[in-house]
Amino acid sequence: MSTKENWPAWEVFTQQKNGAPHEHAGNVHAPDAEMALLNARDVYGRRQEAINIWVVPSVAITASTPEDMGPFFDPGNDKMYRWPNYYKTPEGIKQI
């Protein structure tokens, strides 16, 4: 038997409480999704950290790269008019 068996990795996302978004918690290795879910519960949910868990094959994730950082996010960087505080309201107006 080879000692070097490596099961696929699964990224684990946990929802901490009702209504909260799922957040990335870490990953586990498992031969299939069902066992990944069980492992994720044992590793990332032993202290009531989760009421719901997603597991996603790590290879299924497409991520932006650090080299992209500048150009990729550029379109969002120079449009200050997307923030409400870009707009001046006339004096005396308390609520808008």
Binding site: W7, A30, P31, M35
Partner: peptide, 13 residues
């Protein structure tokens, strides 16, 4: 245990 886990995953697949 590891072998059984793999066998189970293969059978289910």
């Amino acid at each position: 245990v590891r072998e059984a886990a793999v066998a189970y995953a293969e059978k289910k697949a």
